[in-house]
Amino acid sequence: MLKMTNNKVLLILTAITIGAVALYMLYDLNPAIYFYQLPSRVKRIAAIVIVGVAIAVSTVIFQTIVKNRILTPSIMGLDSVYVFIQTSMIFFGGASSAIVLNSKANYFVSMLLLVIFTLFVFRFLFRFTKNNVFLLLLIGIILGTLFGNLATFMQMMISPEDFLILQNSLFGSFSAVDESLLGITGVIVVLSVLYVLRDFNSLDVMSLGRDHAMNLGVDYDRKVSQLLIVIAILVSAATALVGPMMFLGLLVVNIAHELFSTYRHLYLIIGSVLISVLTLVLGQMAIQFMFDGGVELSVIINLVGGLYFIYLMLRRSKV
């Protein structure tokens, strides 16, 4: 079989992604209202790129740290916590309270709580479970179920009108992204990614494991705690912006691993970013043009991602 070099794969992937973005921008453009259509599409693409970068980068690094390709921050219960936070706001504040109506306040409160939760899970559990992946996954799932159930419980108690308002924030979607939040999320994501890229060679060394990395002079433990903070910020920013996209990270990073047979983070990170933008654009095109907005994007992502997750589990169990 002819083996393509990683650079070639990267080039083709970039071309496809740009093509998909262009197609999304220009598809079925109505000359009469293009001045309305175009800005709204540009806005969505901007949101897609921001979220795509945040999820891809954070998942690649997370998996380098836990040395496992089926664990992602979202699967560790982060998404359920987000739903729990949104439900609590309506449950305790009511649908007309400032924190629900004011999207900026909602965004910052959600993000802050998510970062706190993630750091708690990472810091605390990593120490307790001694990086035992299965124990971590188990605790993540239990925490996810706990917060999921608490949220469901509260959802039963609120009025149907409130629930309708809540429902919008329970699915990840790019249809109703608040413009004013794009800028701030973009800045957060760019700063975090720059911080990671500053020293991405050490990520390659870290993928060899703690002992090898320490041997080669990397301050492994300090580096891991710094990176975990960055991951918490990235995932929280993306989730607070568009809502939960549980299987997105898992999907794109694993596809990147299959496309680029390498350990090198340069390829893995750029590849995952491109795949994640591509996935989101294709999904957005499907719901916007095929289903006329009748389906939420996260439903499609989770359907595809979930199936892929099962496939990964089955393939692993065979080995």
């Binding site: 390709r69 060394v205 993928s207 090898h212 390498t262 350990y263």
Partner: peptide, 15 residues
């Protein structure tokens, strides 16, 4: 569980 060649692994020694 890394896709890493012998030469790449050995090169890490120069890090």
């Amino acid at each position: 569980e890394l896709k890493i060649t012998v030469r790449e692994l050995v090169s890490f020694g120069r890090y």
